[in-house]
Each structure stands twice: as C-alpha cells, then as structure tokens.
Design a protein around this nucleic acid. Sequence first.
DNA 1: ATGAAAGCGCTAACAT
DNA 2: ATGTTAGCGCTTTCAT
Lengths: 334, 334
Amino acid sequence: MVKITDVARHAGVSPSTVSYALNGKRPISEETRRRIEASIRELGYHPHAGARALAGARSHTLALVMPLRSGVHLPVVTQFAMSVVTAARRHDHDVLLLTGEEGEDGLRRVADSARADGFVVMDVQLNDRRLPLLRTLQRPSVLIGFPAEPAGLTCVDLDFRAVGEACAEHLALLGHRRVALLGSPPEVYERGTGFARRVEDGFTAAADRNGLAAAVHPCEADPAAAPALVRRLLAEDPPPTGVVIHNEAMLGPLTDALRAEGLRVPGDLSVVAVCPDELAERSSVPLTSVAIPAAELGARAVDLLIRQLAGDPVPESTLLPPRLTVRSSTGPRG
Amino acid sequence: MVKITDVARHAGVSPSTVSYALNGKRPISEETRRRIEASIRELGYHPHAGARALAGARSHTLALVMPLRSGVHLPVVTQFAMSVVTAARRHDHDVLLLTGEEGEDGLRRVADSARADGFVVMDVQLNDRRLPLLRTLQRPSVLIGFPAEPAGLTCVDLDFRAVGEACAEHLALLGHRRVALLGSPPEVYERGTGFARRVEDGFTAAADRNGLAAAVHPCEADPAAAPALVRRLLAEDPPPTGVVIHNEAMLGPLTDALRAEGLRVPGDLSVVAVCPDELAERSSVPLTSVAIPAAELGARAVDLLIRQLAGDPVPESTLLPPRLTVRSSTGPRG
DNA sequence: ATGAAAGCGCTAACAT
DNA sequence: ATGTTAGCGCTTTCAT
C-alpha cells in the first residue's frame, strides 16, 4: 500500500507538505506542488480514508437516507441517488447509503461512528420521527421535502405551489376558460408532505388571476372510480376544456376513462399531468407534464450540505422552480 | 465523543477487553461481557469507524456500483440497492454508493483508500471494461450478471434459461400447443449480458420437451411496429394460443395491438410477460409474469461477498430460480 | 481470562 | 514555504 510517507520521500518533501498540497490548507510553492502531484500520480497514491477521518475531523462522506415506504416513485429515487453521488464526488466526498428503515438509531450510529459528516434525508414526512434527532445531532443535514415545522432545518423541495400555477397558466395561455384539478387521494394530504395542498393553492390562485373558472376534485387512488369521476367532470355545464391530473396512480385509469367517453385529447380536452417524465412519455398520448426534478434536487441538496460543512450560512428553505414539458396532450381550446 | 477507553473505564476493564468483547476474537467471561455491554449501552458508544479501519484491516463497508446507462429498469435498481443495504447491515457493514460512471478509477480509488472491503457491481456488460481490474484488485467482488468470460469472478444472476422454461411450461400446463416468444431487440442480444438468448434457449427447449410448436420472433423496440408484428403472429396457421413477451418497451404497444385486433386475453390468447412485477400489475389485464427478483439478488450478492471476506470459498456462479406469478393474462386453451 | 503498549496513516499544531 | 512531531481511537501482539 502506498502511503503519504512514500509520496513524501519520492517527492523529496515532508509528509505534512504532501498533506497540505493535497488539501490546500497552506500555500505550497508551484515547483513543490508539481513534484508532489507527479509523485502521487506515479505511485498511484490514494490517502487512507480511515486515517484521514481519524486524524482530521471529517470522513469526507455524506449519508443518503432512502425512503422507508415505497410510496415514492422508485425511478425518481434512483435518479436522485445518482445525482447525489455525482455531486458529492465533485466535492471529493463519497456517499454512504442508508435505508429509512434504520430510523433514528441508524442516524445516530452513523453520526457517532464518524462514518458520515452530514445527511441528506429523502422522503421526509410532515411529522417525521427523525426530526428532533436531526435538529440536535452535531452534523448538518438537508431534508428533501418540508416537514410541518421546518424551522432550524435545511429543506429543499420542488416548489409545488408554482407547479399548480404553471399548469393553470399553461392552460390559460392556450385559451382555456374552464379548468379542473383532479387531485391526490386524501391520504396524501394527511400523511404526506403537504405538497398536494400546495399544488391546489397554486392552481386556484393562478386560475383566479387569469380569470379561469377552476374546480378541484380530490381523487381516490381507485382505478374503478375513474369512469364515474370523468362523467362527473363532464356533467358540469359547461364542462372544463382543460384538466390537471395530480395523481400518479389514477393517471392511466383516468386517461382510459376519457377515451372510453369518446373524448379526444387534446381536441376535446387538454390534459396536464404532474408526474415523472417517464410516465408522461409512455402514455398513449404523450402527456404535457410537470415532473419532479430529481437530479436537480439531489445536486442542490449536496450543495447545501457541503456549504454547511464549510461553515457557510445556507437558506433554511429552497424551492426549485418547476419545469413544464409540453407534449401532445394539450392544445388550444376548441 | 464516547470512546473505547471511556467504556473500558466505566466497565472497569482494559480497552483491549472491550475491543475483544465487541468482535468476539477471544473469549470473555460472561460476567465481564455483561458489564461491558451495559456500559456500551449506557454511554451510547459507537466505535469510530476510521480508527477501526486504520487499526484493523477492514472498513466494514461494501461498495455498491450502480449502473452507468439507464437501460436498466430503475425501480429494480432501487429495490436491489435497498436489499443490499439491508443485508449488509445484518452483517455489521455499511454500503458506499458508487456510480458506474466512475469506472475503473473509481473502483481503484475506493479500494486503495480502504473505503470499502469489497464490491457489488450491478449491470455488468458482456465485455465490461472493469473486469480486468476486478480480477486483480486485492478485494473480493460479486457481479450481478454474467460477463462473456466469468472465470475467476463471482457472478449472480437470475437463471434466465429457467425463465424461458418456466414460461413455456406454464403455457403447456394450461393445454396450449402452439406458443411464440416475442423476444428482445437485437441490441440486447449484442450489447447485453446474453440473457435474451438464454431465455430463448430455455423457452424452445421446454417447448420441445412438452411437444409444443414454438416460434421465436425477435422484436425491435419500436411501438409503431407492434400492430404489424401482432398481425404476423396471427397470420400463422394455426396461430399460437400462448405467447411470451420478453421485451419491456414493447409490452404496452403489443398488448394494445392485441386488443386492437379484437383478441381477448386470455380468452383467445394467453400472455406471459418477462418484466418487473410493477409493470405486470399495472397492465390493463394484469399479466402473468416472471420478474427480476431484485431483493433476492441483492441479499445473495451481499452474502457471497461477506463469505469471501471471511475467507470462505464461494461458488463462481450462482443462478437464482425464477418465480412465475400467475395473474389474469393466462388461462386454459380455448 | 485479562492487561499493557505498540502502532495503523494521516492531520495540524508548533516549529524554523 | 517547509519540516517535526504529537496524537486521533482503535486492534492486536505480547505479556501475565
């Protein structure tokens, strides 16, 4: 195994000089730095992570806590994880993967054993059991999603209010005057992170601003209920010409039901979905949609964590703007 | 921070005794062990991972290398990762997450810096660039999938030949006499890990054994081609009454095309899919299917890695038996 | 069955 | 701008 003293000898300097050249904590002459870098490459030196963590105060590792439950769309989880790793590597950090299942004990274990310097926690619930611990732990963390009481925690999420607004505005711009939101099932409002309500608020607010008539239909995750819901929607007089679906499980059943009722999309009805791009693309009519920007969320979370580790102040709340992708399911009214 | 000397003092023993009590490398009297364990709990002691790695020869960390390309079904990746973490924790190991993107340099870095004791490598290609390195690295690894030349490497995968057999046998048992396999696109055969061919072989072999007439249709991943393919399938005289679809991208288009041709599933045609359960369940007619047992693969991979780390001999090749889940898309002939 | 003590490879004072 | 050196907390001989 190649160690720092090997590099030092090879470059004709002291170990500490190599160490400093590596982490830039004090100035090194250009000439010396070059020799050291050459030696490192030539010998294939990689500092022993354990020794580094023991002597320094940092493991150069971030912990990523994956969801407990599988309510989250799994592809989004993978994309998110990948972007976290990629971003972490850019900052010379590795990523330790934890499951939400390990709960508070897992967090404490990882923190106490100095396995990780900070945490990225996915799938944070409104009243997450882990919140008190995360607050007191002497390591920074970044939460994906907003708990009921986010004060004192660093949180990142998609700006769901802006999602609702973007959907309404997209339909308004296409000339629609009557729009509806087919929302999430009640469980999501209660158990979830509150994002369903935020979409709703943004949707109705933007509809108001644009003079649209807007209806909101909460929506169970029951495929069998789709036809009835669609009929109820169309029974309005006059019926909406644009609809936003924020309910992943019902997306298929609802579009099927629309087709069954003989409605053409977007000819008779424009449809905007709030769902992963993957789903929107695979639909029989590719859906105009707003997706969770998993990669951006991951990169941003790492960024915030690294800045905290550097002692920089960071905003407690970060909301990422939504991006609406226009596909084939929306068109001008009529 | 609580350290081993704190525990030792609290329990009235020497640090080394605590260490031995922790890892069981020498006998400790029942009485002493109990006192030590009590102290550990009371003080909330967690050994410093860096110190442990430095003094010992093990980081107690496994590296999990996630896929480069996104050809792999992302939900399967997530499930796999979760099961790897869960299994690793059962053996007192943590998991470091790497992306395939880091390639050989990433593996070397992690090995040389003693960040991980071994590797689980997902998505191994037939002629993976990382294979030579994995062979020479002084750390064990387990590959998910079989490269062209697996000798000297520990590989785990679903037994795809048995998958083909299970599908054919399921149809045979239902009384079908003429069956067809709608296979993977040519790219998969070339670039892939050879599993497509193995399914094919198993399928035809089992069909032969059971006296079925079996046709194999390779199948581009082009949704527009689905109707033509279905018509071609039905043009056979007599047409098959059972079909196996091993092509994730075409699953939707093909079932749509079947419906468009007025075929009832399973009334007129029984369909077996080789695809993630998730997809099979969400199909308009829930599909009888064989899935990738992601969780089992992950657990098995970790198992093999841990056993290698313990110096135990392990089989080079492990094939997991497929599980066919009967849903609504298959029924007796006629 | 238990203790004492010598490192493991690195970082960060404290030197010059 | 660079060198010297004392630990960081643990494991593991070598003792007893």
